[in-house]
């Protein structure tokens, strides 16, 4: 057949994963703090806007990269049902990474706000100013942000379960350093036989 399967994601995929993990978690915490704060509101929003657009750009790059690179196979410890759930949750994460910044951008457009990045740099509106549209997108932004947070928690929970309880070294696939998997010493894989 072709070359032997990868044990890890491509290096640029791993870098994108961890960079975006930090950015998105920061973004979720900035977002939730922002909507209740008074004194910190201004600087939090000032970071939230350009950080969101940076996430959008990186998410698009990441989506293209995913289509172009070969993925490592799921570990043998994962059942077909779990693989289906894992694939679906990855699709959901990608969809939210792209949808949330777009909705934020559209929401500011519909709210007749200037979309300020930094200094004099700003983005054009992508939707016409419209009150009901603003209200719908504003609500959607909140609901989908909670969904993203919940999906990330589930993702982290699943990886922790595999790492600490299944002990199948699943994290090696995404480790920033190169890992050569010792094929033999995998008690969990053996137990499946």
């Amino acid at each position: 057949m072709t070359s032997k399967p990868r044990t890890q994601f491509a290096i640029q995929s791993r870098l994108l994963h961890w960079l975006m993990a930090v950015m998105i978690l920061a973004m979720l915490f900035i977002g939730i703090a922002m909507v209740s704060s008074l004194a910190d509101y201004h600087w939090l929003v000032a970071i939230h806007r350009p950080l969101g657009i940076a996430i959008l750009i990186l998410a698009i790059i990441r989506l293209i990269n995913r289509k172009l690179t070969k993925l490592p196979p799921f570990p043998p410890t994962m059942s077909p049902a779990e693989r289906r759930i894992a694939s679906a949750s990855e699709k959901l994460l990608y969809a939210l990474m792209i949808a949330l910044p777009l909705i934020g951008w559209g929401m500011l457009s519909a709210g007749h706000y200037p979309i300020v990045m930094f200094g004099a740099v700003h983005l054009p509106p992508i939707l016409p100013a419209h009150p009901e549209l603003f209200a719908i997108l504003r609500a959607a932004h909140t609901v989908l942000a909670y969904l993203l947070f919940a999906t990330i928690l589930a993702h982290v929970g699943a990886v922790l379960f595999h790492t600490l309880i299944v002990r199948d070294r699943i994290l090696d696939r995404m480790a920033l350093w190169p890992v050569r998997r010792p094929k033999v010493a995998d008690p969990a894989a053996k137990s499946l036989e």
């Binding site: 299944v166 002990r167 008690p187 137990s191």
Partner: peptide, 18 residues
């Protein structure tokens, strides 16, 4: 296949702790 597998070498207290 079961949905999830647990490392059989883990003792019960170790499992609960994890």
């Amino acid at each position: 296949k079961p949905f999830l597998t647990i490392d059989p070498t883990l003792t019960r207290p170790a499992l609960l702790l994890r």
